[in-house]
């Protein structure tokens, strides 16, 4: 099992001789195989929280568990996939070679063949292309394929489609949901789009800023698999409104 458990997680940064509290008292359980969205105003620490789960940063207080282990054990066992805001591909490697990078690092046999992943993210025929020859959306697909190369137990995404246009973004979201369903990984998506959060997730954690805290937790009990026409549904709008209300009540408390 790979539930992600956050207990009283706090994070302070030293900036010169000033201490800034980025996150305080974060409590949450993200069940194994679920899809969670983190949403909040900029500067609320949602990207920081994602990096704490990935063990890129260590929390200054509280504890994070992935399954029965600390995040650094999960990281060193190559169980975490991470998709950054920008694709972060190595420019001298081809598409397939970029996807193979985590496999080389782990020194284990690939859980899924890179060629198969290229097909999964819809890039068949571009296996040997260099990142510079691909559009932004295609590069981000490569980044997602790379994150899936070892079938990670945890898939962390930091506004992966933030730089894409609306149409590409919605297509990518549907593809991502299919991939997630197929792989059964525990997914965490940082976003600042309310409709994206509701469309994708089982639950939305709304963070408020200064310091970053969980303002509200909204369960999204919309049926799966989800398609674009779900966005016309009154139930979808009701959930959107609930997230929006939580976001703005958080703003009021902060102000």
């Amino acid at each position: 099992m790979s539930d992600i458990t956050l207990s009283d997680v706090g994070m302070m940064f030293d900036i010169g001789h000033r201490k800034i509290t980025a996150l305080r008292g974060i409590d949450a359980v993200l069940p194994s195989g679920s899809f969670t969205a983190l949403i909040g105003p900029s500067g609320c620490g949602k990207s920081t929280l994602l990096r704490l789960i990935a063990d890129v940063l260590a929390p200054t207080s509280g504890e994070i568990r992935i399954g029965d282990h600390a995040p650094d054990a999960a990281r060193k066992r190559h169980e975490i996939g991470f998709v950054f805001q920008d694709p972060t591909l190595l420019p001298w490697r081809s598409v397939v070679e970029n996807i193979r990078l985590p496999v080389e690092v782990a020194g284990q046999p690939a859980a899924r063949q890179p060629e198969e992943l290229v097909e999964l993210v819809g890039l068949k025929g571009f296996e040997q292309a260099r990142p510079a020859q691909l559009s932004g959306g295609m590069q981000q697909r490569v980044a997602i394929a790379r994150a899936l190369a070892l079938s990670p137990k945890v898939l962390l995404m930091d506004e992966p489609f933030g730089a894409l246009d609306e149409i590409t973004r919605q297509k990518m979201n549907i593809e991502l949901l299919n991939i997630w369903r197929e792989t059964g990984t525990t997914a965490v998506l940082v976003t600042h789009s309310i409709s994206e959060a509701v469309f994708m997730a089982d639950r939305v954690l709304v963070l408020s800023a200064n310091p970053g805290q969980v303002a509200d937790r909204i369960d999204i009990d919309l049926p799966r698999p989800r398609a674009l026409d779900l966005m016309q549904d009154p139930a979808f709008h009701a959930h959107e409104n609930a997230v929006r209300a939580a976001l703005f009540s958080g703003e009021r408390t902060a102000a």
Binding site: D55, V56, R75, H78, F84, L90, P102, A106
Partner: peptide, 11 residues
């Protein structure tokens, strides 16, 4: 970001 990528990969 490339360094973070390698860290997350457990390199």
């Amino acid at each position: 970001n490339a360094l973070e990528l390698m860290r997350v990969a457990g390199a």
